[in-house]
């Protein structure tokens, strides 16, 4: 399973960098920024990344998760416009470190639906009040 972290500014690049600080270098995990790109250029770049992972003979897109920082932004719009019905591509917004670490832990072991369900749970569970004034 491939992963693309498409975000505003350098957020995605830094998330991938920190993930690799923790886990070591990873294959199939790419960061992409929206910086300086129009909606159509960003859509084309995400589409290009998906097609780079396609089977060279059949052209079938490889299973992938597109991690987006926030719903309603240019990255989310571009991700939705870059994918086509029936392709094994899931778009998840609200990417965080816990979600990416979970992706790397389970991406080769779980079927896509189970993987995505766990990523959503893991990403949400990471948002928790640890202490402070009550």
């Amino acid at each position: 399973m491939r992963g693309l972290v498409a975000t505003h500014g350098d957020l995605g690049r830094e998330l991938v960098r920190v993930v690799e600080m923790i886990t070591g270098p990873q294959h199939g995990l790419t960061a992409m920024t929206n910086h300086g790109k129009s909606a159509s250029d960003l859509t084309a770049e995400i589409r290009g990344w998906l097609e780079d992972g396609a089977d060279p003979e059949s052209g079938t897109i490889a299973p992938a998760v597109l991690f987006i920082d926030d719903h309603g932004g240019s990255c989310a719009n571009a991700a939705m416009l870059a994918t086509r019905p029936g392709e094994p591509v899931v778009i998840l917004s609200g990417v965080n470190l816990a979600m990416l670490l979970a992706f790397l832990s389970w991406r080769e072991d779980l079927d896509p639906d189970e993987l995505v369900a766990r990523l959503v749970t893991r990403g949400r569970d990471a948002i928790t009040r640890l202490g402070g004034v009550s």
Binding site: H8, S38, A39, G72, G73, N77
Partner: peptide, 8 residues
């Protein structure tokens, strides 16, 4: 005028 249309 914005070529990202509706975004953040």
């Amino acid at each position: 005028v914005d070529d990202r249309l509706i975004h953040g």
